[in-house]
Design a protein around this nucleic acid. Sequence first.
DNA 1: TTGAAAGCGCTAACAA
DNA 2: TTGTTAGCGCTTTCAA
Lengths: 343, 343
Amino acid sequence: MGASLKDVAALAGVSVKTVSNVVNGYTYVAPHTREKVEQALAELEYRPNLSARNLRRGRTGVIALALPELDAPYFAELSRFVIDAAVERGWTVLIDQTDGLADREREVLQGIREQLIDGLIFSPITVGREELAARTDSTPMVLLGERIMDGPTHHVAIDNQRAAREMTEHLISLGHTRIGAIGAQENPSANTAHLRLAGYRQALEAAGLPYDERLAPPTASYHRADGAAVMRRLLELDEPPQAVFCFNDLLALGALRTALTSGLRVPDDLALAGFDDIEDGRYSTPTLTTISPDKAHIARTAVELLDARISGSGRGGRPAEDDGQREVEADYRLIVRESTVRP
Amino acid sequence: MGASLKDVAALAGVSVKTVSNVVNGYTYVAPHTREKVEQALAELEYRPNLSARNLRRGRTGVIALALPELDAPYFAELSRFVIDAAVERGWTVLIDQTDGLADREREVLQGIREQLIDGLIFSPITVGREELAARTDSTPMVLLGERIMDGPTHHVAIDNQRAAREMTEHLISLGHTRIGAIGAQENPSANTAHLRLAGYRQALEAAGLPYDERLAPPTASYHRADGAAVMRRLLELDEPPQAVFCFNDLLALGALRTALTSGLRVPDDLALAGFDDIEDGRYSTPTLTTISPDKAHIARTAVELLDARISGSGRGGRPAEDDGQREVEADYRLIVRESTVRP
DNA sequence: TTGAAAGCGCTAACAA
DNA sequence: TTGTTAGCGCTTTCAA
């Protein structure tokens, strides 16, 4: 182990408290003393032991970011922003990968790393409202990307349903009447998927178009392979769709690959739209029409909400009323690119 | 704060030590006692305070993964494997994003989070051999993706130079004689770039082809935008290349976009190859010929090496000879896809 | 098989 | 302005 405060104090010929004062930047240290201490600090290459400090302070300065998969571009991009925002506030971020598995998500909720983290930013996939409500762990938490009304916790998300409706309306406005959807989920607690499907159906209904279940088959997950596979099925239909709204960009990229290799021209023979605005879709050919959630905003807001909760939960922190459950709606934009409209 | 060992001991009517024994799964606890304790544990919802445990044990169970950007697909994919491997060994992983900035990389080397982490897996971009050698922080470290010979630390990487040579040979074998490269770096410590460039040149030389600097212009970084921009410049040359080897897949995807929008057919008019085998390149049209490093192997090996170092550095750990500097060469494969050879 | 008590390194209340 | 000291929750000798 490295040098401790005691070692430094001994070398500098002062008390532990004085060293601590210098280390923590307190005022009221005589210049001469300060200098002596700093010399000793440097000589011994002193590094505070964070475990000890945390134990004493009751805080660790670490928050967890729990998400399904780090290698899904949407989450990778989001993580970058969350980490940036957290670091700006002096926090360290550790990652919990749940793979979207119900068990792991439940573990996260019950606090596997309680006492090691001051707070948690959680992007769930499978756990539903009941499980969130049943949470006993008291670690401050902020939910991401879900929109469970009356949920017991803070959360930040875009209006998925409205965004999905807008995208579908965009496809309708191009004159398409047979519009498919890729990304429906069979798991009833897959909230995001349900909201996007609801928005899709809403738009169809408003336009007087029928909802055809065969045009919106469920997918196993949200990867490129799923999009490619389901697209193949859609193309085998007697009446294939003229346009397809994919519930995320990965699905859309997979579907695009299938469409192109099937000899279809996009958007001429088939219009394709995605959701998430990951970078891939800005460089694919054709580029991808998509919904672009303001990821930086989402990340920043989540970190701020968590900060407020953590500060509020300490003794002598902010008033309790500030700690009420709060929902923040993040911005998004519909971005039209080449996959739906030839430039 | 939650319940402490003391609280549990009081409730169960036993000593702290006994509770500790139960919690840590020691043998030699009378069944009856154990039961009592477990009941108290459950009733109070006891959770060990990790800060205290770490302070006492001198270990935190946390390792840091320091990398340039979490949102670059190669690093996102690698992170997923590193985290998987680490969690398997009971470790928690925290992320340090350096953005490839020299200052931040230096901070990582000097141990910003020393005492919070037991070890460090570091994927550097700009720091060179001298800086690695000058490191004073004693936290066990494993380097990733660099191949600095005689470096002072363990590291695991593929043979970048050989892989680059093989890829260039592949392009030559297709009959191309005017072969460009995208991804050279002006920063002299950008090791990976230099190794790939060296492999490229080696192959040219072996085939008796001239090395033309104009065909291998430097890029600012390794993103899609860089590949797209440099490709435009290459196409403006009097004699544009017939094939281009990009030093990573992102560059290749950017270059592909430029080529396609310029009306070129790939691979007929221009063959394109990448490096890294990120998932995007498996679904682009055309799919991307690339070098596929065994990421899972790299991640697992890095975690194992780190584990050995950490275990070895403790008092009474393994012998020091086991802790010597070690280089591990990971496997890779050349994967030929549509961007160089029409199927 | 269980208990008492020391001490990991740090912070902070209290004293001087 | 600086020093003394208790104690955060845990593990771990040493005794019983």
